[in-house]
Design a protein around this nucleic acid. Structure first.
Lengths: 254, 254
DNA sequence: GCAAAAGTGTTGCTATTACACCCATGC
DNA sequence: GCATGGGTGTAATAGCAACACTTTTGC
């Protein structure tokens, strides 16, 4: 037994599809070897063991590519989960682990990461070679945050909800939303994102006043085109300026 | 090799001695077996491997008792450190690990916890049986945060500084300071603590106004006694009320 | 009586809230 | 011409920052 048998990462990828807040989950399916009937199926976070010589964040990035096709996104470590029985609280988890020849009573610590991305930007796909023909993870898909599937692997529902509250806090003090926004964006879009994530609404005029006071949100000499309404001013987020401002004044953003 | 060989916890215990902010460190000493001369000595955070059947927070509490004598304090998980070479970047770390028959190139993930306590409340002492007679940890002691020792084990200096910034953020949004304060306290003391931790000063009148508006800081029918100045009103922190208020309104405290 | 910390109010400024209408565009 | 989201100002209120003197006690 080795380091990699005891440590894993799990990724909670939040996606905004310009309508709603979503989370990326895989389907975990176990088939009967003989009949090929489904024994069970539930949802699981993209995650995997950390290889012996792999930094933990690299492991998180690797599993994302392997199980979702998402590449090159910033990941935020939020919490480590180490309950003794976190892999063996549900019957189907035990069944699953036994079948991949892992002892369900063996302890695996998992480091949780979250991210916020544009849900429309990626074609989701599993590229990882699945080692057990009748047990596999498939169908990475976005699930609305308001209707999280009941049945999830291990302690993943707990991990998901904790990530959600880290996201909601994080978004208030860190420029997380600019990690998902296109280079050029309108204030209307920005407002919609904040409203969706925080599940609230803001007054348009007050919101704009507040954001326009931030020096790192800089107007471009460019407007929207071909929209069926008054074209909006485009802005960009200046990361360098943001870093400068942040050094002096810790609490910015909403 | 087992779970416990790959996962550890480290505790960054901040102490306030009613003057300055301190941090609790142990001395790590290695002696020459023959001459008993000191080969090296540096500082190390209280930490240890997590036992196979031990929850991670329990491990953190255990090592605190074993290496410092501090019992029953709230611990806050803040970050997990997993760099591949975090145990082998310094010559003396390699020497140390070889002598306790641990492979320096072996990877150990460590989960960091921090806490804030009254530095005067505890008699510090090491009770853990030290297994290698010429290599030991001793002398738990408070070190001023402004003069952190240069020489520290592994990546412990990094862990310490990251903990410090989590503390400084945490104290603004969570009632951490009330975990260290005596049951009955004065507003003057409260202000001094915030000023020390955040390394700033506040206007007395504005500070009091702000804190007295918080319903969970409740005045007692009692004043200081036998002080060589006007005796101050005593207050207590009502944790139940705090929980209630917090449910509605997420961002409180300073 | 003096040293030491407690306690207290006001003012100007800044930030926040609440609120309603016209504008430019594509179809 | 109508539907769509963009864009704008003001007034009332609440919160924040800056400021100095009196009080009570122990010694």
């Amino acid at each position: 037994m080795d380091f990699q048998d005891y440590v894993s990462v799990d990724c909670v990828i939040f996606g905004y599809d310009f309508e709603r807040l979503k989370v990326l989950l895989l389907e975990r399916v176990m088939l009967d070897q003989a009949t090929h009937k489904v024994i069970f199926s539930d949802k699981i976070l993209p995650g995997s063991h950390v290889l012996n010589n792999e930094p933990i964040e690299a492991a998180a990035k690797r599993v994302l590519v392997e199980f979702t096709g998402i590449e090159d996104i910033p990941l935020h470590q939020f919490k480590t989960f180490g309950d003794l029985d976190r892999l063996s609280r549900q019957e189907r988890d035990i069944l699953w682990l036994k079948n991949i020849h892992q002892d369900p009573s063996q302890r695996v610590l998992t480091v949780g990461f979250y991210s916020l991305v544009d849900a429309n930007k990626y074609k989701l796909s599993v590229t990882k070679q699945q080692t057990h023909p009748e047990m596999f993870k498939r169908n990475p898909a976005w699930y609305d945050i308001e209707t999280i599937p009941e049945e999830m692997a291990y302690d993943h529902k707990q991990i998901l909800y904790e990530a959600l509250s880290y996201l909601r806090e994080g978004v208030k003090y860190n420029p997380l939303v600019f990690e998902l926004l296109p280079e050029k964006f309108t204030l209307g879009l920005l407002q919609k994102i904040y409203e969706t994530i925080l599940n609230t609404t803001f007054d348009k005029r007050n919101f704009r006043r507040k954001l326009l006071k931030m020096p790192f949100i800089v107007p471009l000499e460019e407007k929207q085109q071909k929209v069926a309404h008054k074209p909006a001013q485009l802005y960009r987020f200046d990361w360098k300026l943001y870093q400068q401002v942040k050094r002096n004044n810790h609490d910015i953003m909403l």
